[in-house]
Structure formats: C-alpha cells, structure tokens
Amino acid sequence: MKSVLPILTVVAAIVVMWYAAAIGMNAKWAREQAARQGVELGFTELVADTWSQDRPRLPAPHQVLEELWNSTGAKILAGKTWSKRSLIYHGWITLSATLAGFAIGSLAGILLAVGIVHNKAMDMSVMPWAIASQTIPILAIAPMIIVVLNSIGIQGLIPKAIISAYLSFFPVVVGMVKGLRAPGREQLDLLKTYNASGAQTFWKLRLPASVPYLFTSLKIGMAASLVGAIVGELPTGAIRGLGARMLTGSYYGQTIQIWSALFAAAILAAGLVGIIGMIEKLMLRRMGVRT
C-alpha cells in the first residue's frame, strides 16, 4: 500500500486547486449579485458564496459530491433507483450501450487482426481503412449514424453501441496485430520443424503470445467505448443516459448536474478498466507469467 500516499497527495492538491479555481471563476457573479442588492461582500462571505451558488461557473467539489449522492445513494434509499433523476438509471443506460459496443468492437477488432495477420490482401487493405476511419471526427459521424438508423426504425441502444464499437475496434486491431506478430523467427521456425499447420501455429503460439497486448488494447477500447456511448447520446435530443444528462444540464445552466454526470462517467470508466485489469491479472497468472 505504498502507492496510497502519493495518490492521496495528488488528490489533495487537485482538491485545493479546484476550490481556489471555484473562488476565481464564481467571484464575478457573486460580486454582481451583491452589488445589485447594494451590499459589500467581505472576503469570507465572498468565498462562502462562490462555493455555494446554484448555478456556478465551476461548482465546488463538495457540491458535485452532494449532487452525486443525491442522485445515486439517496435515490436508492428513497426507493427511486430507476427514476429519471437517478444517475444510476442514466448510468445504466450508458453502461449497457458501452458494453454492447465494446463487445462488438473488440470482437470485430480481434477478427480483423486475425485476418490481417493471416491474409496478405487484408494486411494491405484493411489497415489504411481502419486508420482513415479514426481520422473522421466522431462528433461528425455520430449524428449521421443515429439519423440513418432512426429512419429505418432502429433507435435506443443499438445506434449508440455502433458508435461505441466504431471507436473501440481500432485500438484492439492495432494491439492484437502487434501481439499476433510478437513471436520471433526462432519461435516460428520451431513450429515449422514440427510441420505445424497454420491453425496450430495460431492457437499454440500466436494467440497466447498476443494476450498481454490484447488486454492493453481492451483497456483503451473500453474507455473509447464509453466515450462513444456518451457521444451517441448527445445529438438528437436524447433524454436518457449520462450524455443526455450533460446535455440537458448545459441547456439549463445546471453546471452541478453536468459535473456530477462527468464524474459518474469517470467513475464508470475507472471501474470498467479496473475490471479488465483484474481479469488480465488472473489470466496472466494462470498462464504462468511471473507477477
């Protein structure tokens, strides 16, 4: 647990800077309000005001935490876990699209990588397209996907999952190709002396050798999936999901709501990536890698 102290130090520093920034960014509004009422604010009053505004430019950490609690734990206690104001409800909407997109994207990525490594034509043709696909801004393509699918009657989870998959397949392709090509010449020659088939080479050498690379890519892919799902909730006035929470928050100047949705997304991402990390550890230990 030696790593705890540095982490806590960094967190503390961020919190301090955050509170300071909240004073700076919200002071103007506080002074204007005070001037309108003809009162002069002392320093302590000013600070207290900047940390407790309803619609601050930058909400203070405790405001975000309070909102987070109110829209999660408090909702559970009140038996309203699945209400429209519950972040658990919105988080689940986003999470389900993320997981679906991640599954599609990872699978597509792995299959493409296998194709690229085993087929010269695919090696030459797929990679440039994969790279090109990532140069198109997702914000430009997301609304099109949603509108096109909507016009043929597909809405909800699937369009968002497709956007997620679109973002997450790429790191998986890149990492998996690298992993499948990791075995060196001697390792491949050894199998050649056994007259091993291509399939045997794949299952017994290339695939196991690619596992560490795969997990690294899966972590990146998972984070990308979440971004994709959130972006998929932004256009066309979605009303459900963390993205929708951020969007409606910005319509009404509900900065605290935006920030709490942001935090929920970050916590979700950390949790998902953490789960993959744990599976990775278990898997590598089972494969006998020293840890």
């Binding site: 020659d189 002396t193 196991p208 494969m287 890698v289």
Partner: peptide, 21 residues
C-alpha cells in the same frame, strides 16, 4: 523430410514458451 518430421532441432536459444510449464 521436414514434413515427415524426420529430425528434432535444438536452437541456440532455449526458446521455451513462457506460458507453458
């Protein structure tokens, strides 16, 4: 001869697979 697995080859480096016992 290779296809008939007529020989065993010992490489300069041991080249054991780290994920296998």
């Amino acid at each position: 001869a290779r296809r008939k697995r007529m020989y065993g080859y010992v490489f300069q480096a041991a080249g054991l697979y780290p994920w296998r016992t």
